[in-house]
Nucleic acid binder design. Structure first.
Lengths: 186, 186
DNA sequence: TATTGTTATACTCTATAACTATA
DNA sequence: TATAGTTATAGAGTATAACAATA
């Protein structure tokens, strides 16, 4: 986020490029999107892109990504959860869960403790600082989401329900049906 | 996609890890998702994740990402479009549009030609091979999307409309309103 | 023999910064 | 002075492979 500037500045620069954030994926007038404009999947991608950028605007001052925010919520609601379970819940590989956990602990928002009953595993917990930070974030994120749903009017709840069905439908179309009940105790 | 295997194999291996693709973000039973389960934004992320994986299943044999597919469609529908405009339409930085175009030309699906009237710019065009490939892809992707909408039943069209409104709403919430009409000629 | 987490590494995607050549 | 594209580099994010400790 923070760039180190060139010390020897005036000498080397003729014209400095302005930063060029872009990122917005909304339709550009004059461009023909063909099939893309008719695909549910592309509409979803556009919406996700817009929401992602909007999330960053809403949480800019705290330097959390949507993923890190999700990890904080999950650890908060499931204190002592294993690193591997966190990864599974977030669709990450073990090594990704490791790096995510490292980031959270390096920033003092979470900590690893020995998991009772399994010396291989960690239990994850929020630190007091992490809990305080999460409270702030949840307020901002919930407010942000509320404003979004309000902008959608009466269609808001229906849209959310539709998205949940969509996630299920896309998963169910897989040739090999996913076993969603794994890890449930018998 | 293709991994080079260790030549000196038997000696160095005690137990080879099985591949561990994961990636699926659907709710894990027994995990409390707290606020996440109530957020429109998180439902959207789950749906996008499921659809992304599903797109890969549907197009696995051709090695295209959703992004590369979109680029093929855009160039096909807007022959001679500039690299920069392609990037703008897809929410990419100039350098990203460059790499994407490089990939398309390296694979023989698109080509750069001098743009008439501006010696700095390229005009992008599909090659005959690119056109043939796109036809195949469009059939597969459209069929895939149709199946998805069918699985949603009568709510399908409403969901797509809702997503388009959502993309607009998330963008409009930005403090500085985006000028969506830039580049339109006066 | 399988699982949890780790280390090391690599690949993709995308951004920044500085540059060239045009305009 | 601004724009189109390029080069080089850096940072996320996420994957693979192999490993140690434990189950």
């Amino acid at each position: 986020m923070v760039a180190v500037r060139n010390q020897n500045y005036a000498e080397s620069v003729t014209k400095t490029d302005s930063p060029d954030p872009e990122g917005l994926m909304l339709p550009v007038p004059g461009v023909d999107y063909g099939l893309l404009d008719h695909l549910l999947g592309y509409a979803l991608r556009r919406a996700q892109n817009a929401l992602y950028l909007d999330f960053y605007r809403a949480t800019a001052e705290w330097d959390v990504s949507p993923q890190r925010f999700a990890a904080l919520v999950l650890i908060s609601r499931n204190p002592g959860m294993r690193q591997g379970l966190l990864g599974q819940a977030m669709g990450l590989h073990r090594s990704g869960a490791l790096r995510l956990t490292d980031w959270l602990t390096d920033n003092g928002w979470a900590e690893r403790r020995d998991a009772p009953g399994d010396a291989r595993a960690w239990g994850l917990y929020l630190t007091p600082a992490g809990k305080r930070r999460l409270v702030t974030l949840e307020v901002a994120v919930a407010e942000h989401d509320r404003a979004l749903i309000a902008a959608l009017g009466e269609q808001g709840p229906a849209l959310k329900a539709g998205l949940e069905r969509l996630a299920w439908a896309a998963t169910a179309q897989s040739t090999v049906p996913h076993n969603t009940s794994r890890r449930r105790k018998p």
